[in-house]
Amino acid sequence: MVIAFLRTIILYAFIIAGIRLMGKRQVGELEPSELVLALLIADLAAVPMQDFGIPLLTGLIPILTLLCITMALSVLTMKSIKFRAVLCGRPSIIVENGKLRQGEMKRNRFTLDELMEELRMKGVTDLSTVKYAILETNGQLSVLPFAAQKPPTAQDLDLHLPEPGLPVVMINDGRVITRNLHSRGLDEVWLDKQLQQHHVKRTQDVFLLTVDETNKVCVIEKEAVR
């Protein structure tokens, strides 16, 4: 029982480390080659987890080999546009100037139901308002409306708004993030004053507290447990 537990932990940690080395893009978006990698790794890891007669290295070596191949392919796709097109494919324009390109839809086996679902998820209900709808290599649909259909920006309205910058989390679920506090040149005394101003007695009662670059504070208290 202990051996099974240890083998599973080792394989799990090994795979997580390998996926982390591949970078955040691969974790968030699966290209065809990366999907194949995920399926193969799952298959290879399952065998040594269940069969104690198989040496652990029998599972680790193929997984390591696949990860190395994938990392090498990632470097090649960065260096060569042609190789990237062969391995990952090219984006396909499904809608152009409000009109469907049925040939591209058939080539990608992309149905009308899938198109309408993707458009609804982007908040688009009228196909004629779409300048371009592009099926990306990872299977996601990018929708670009006509300029007249885009909501006006502050620049369009000639409004000069202050830049709030990036909010930084100072308290996360009752825990003070000291590193973030000090990175903004703040301290615990300042934090206590902010809590007093928002009528909060303890940091443990705060679910989230953020500060942006204009020193605007946002405090969300924990909900009472019923």
Score class of each variant (00 low, 15 high):
Met1Asn: 12
Met1Thr: 12
Val2Ala: 07
Ile3Leu: 04
Ala4Met: 14
Phe5Glu: 07
Leu6Trp: 14
Ala13Pro: 03
Ile16Ser: 03
Ile16Gly: 02
Ala17Glu: 03
Ala17Gly: 13
Ala17Leu: 14
Gly18Gln: 05
Ile19Thr: 15
Ile19Tyr: 14
Met22Lys: 00
Gly23Trp: 13
Gln26Arg: 07
Val27Ser: 07
Gly28Thr: 13
Leu30Asn: 09
Glu34His: 08
Val36Lys: 06
Val36Gln: 05
Leu37Asn: 03
Leu37Cys: 04
Ile41Lys: 00
Leu44Ile: 11
Ala46Gly: 06
Val47Met: 09
Val47Glu: 10
Pro48Lys: 09
Asp51Met: 07
Phe52His: 09
Phe52Leu: 12
Gly53Thr: 12
Ile54His: 08
Leu57Pro: 05
Leu57Lys: 10
Leu60Cys: 00
Ile61Phe: 08
Thr65Val: 12
Leu66Lys: 02
Leu67Gln: 02
Cys68Arg: 08
Cys68His: 05
Met71Leu: 08
Ala72Arg: 06
Leu73Ser: 05
Val75Ala: 07
Thr77Ile: 07
Thr77Ala: 10
Met78Cys: 00
Lys79Glu: 07
Ser80Asn: 06
Ser80Arg: 01
Ser80Asp: 02
Ser80Ala: 00
Ser80His: 02
Phe83Pro: 01
Phe83Ser: 00
Ala85Pro: 01
Val86Asn: 01
Val86Gly: 01
Val86Arg: 10
Leu87Gln: 00
Gly89Asn: 03
Gly89Ile: 00
Arg90Lys: 11
Pro91Glu: 02
Ser92Ile: 02
Ile94Asp: 05
Val95Leu: 08
Val95Ile: 15
Lys99Asp: 01
Gln102Lys: 13
Gly103Asp: 07
Lys106Ala: 07
Arg107Leu: 13
Arg109Glu: 09
Arg109Asn: 11
Asp113Thr: 13
Leu115Gly: 10
Met116Gly: 07
Met116Leu: 15
Glu117Met: 14
Glu118Ser: 11
Glu118Ile: 02
Leu119Val: 06
Leu119Asn: 09
Asp126Asn: 15
Tyr132Ala: 08
Tyr132Glu: 10
Tyr132Trp: 12
Glu136Leu: 06
Asn138Glu: 10
Gln140Arg: 15
Leu141Ser: 13
Ser142Asn: 13
Ser142Glu: 10
Val143Met: 03
Val143Asn: 03
Leu144Pro: 02
Leu144Tyr: 10
Phe146Tyr: 14
Ala147Asp: 13
Gln149Asp: 15
Lys150His: 06
Pro151Tyr: 09
Pro151Ser: 06
Pro152Phe: 10
Ala154Arg: 13
Ala154Gln: 12
Asp156Arg: 05
Leu157Glu: 07
Asp158Pro: 06
Leu159Gly: 09
Pro164Trp: 10
Pro164Asp: 11
Met170Pro: 01
Met170Leu: 15
Asp173Gly: 07
Gly174Gln: 04
Gly174Ala: 06
Arg175Lys: 15
Ile177Pro: 03
Thr178Asp: 12
Arg179Gln: 13
Leu181Asp: 01
Ser183Asn: 15
Leu186Lys: 15
Asp187Glu: 04
Trp190Tyr: 03
Asp192Arg: 15
Gln194Pro: 10
Gln194Met: 11
Leu195Met: 13
Gln196Val: 04
His198Cys: 00
His198Arg: 02
His198Tyr: 03
Lys201Met: 00
Arg202Asp: 05
Asp205Ala: 15
Asp205Gln: 15
Leu208Phe: 11
Asp212Met: 04
Cys218Met: 14
Val219His: 03
Val219Cys: 04
